[in-house]
Amino acid sequence: DDGIPVGSDEDEGVEVRQKVVQVDPKEQEDFDRELKALLQESLESRKSEVRTRSTLNMKVPMNVLEGSKDQRAGESESGEETMDEEGGNAGGGSKVRVKVLMKKGHKQQTRQMFIPGDCPLVQSTKEQEAAELEE
């Protein structure tokens, strides 16, 4: 290798005069119908299932609750990398770090993720916090 970085910055400035993508309305209609059918069918199949799932294990584990109040991307304590910026398709503006609660087998675990500040999921917690503050 001659040590030249591959796919470097110079490449960014390509301006392709692009044709405007036109979605065939017929195709879209057809697709929407199939999507709707799939959704409907999924819902129906679940409804007809017997509801025996009473064992709800939805408690947020304590360790997750510690020190996770509304941290903005970029000011992370551990110096870990923040979301890459160039994507620009996550809604723009600030990003909020959330913890996603998941199950691996029977074990609970969380993974960190960034979501846009204007995401409804964040809005609700913000409102909640604001309400708490007022009390």
Binding site: R46, N57, V60, K69, V98, K99, K103, T125
Partner: peptide, 29 residues
Amino acid sequence: YNCGCRNVFLLGFISAKAENVVVLLCREP
């Protein structure tokens, strides 16, 4: 997160009221 349903057409996120914690939950049931 609760029932293990894997049908992505039924899945969505909800968040905890106070914390920045989110979880995947199925719409039905």
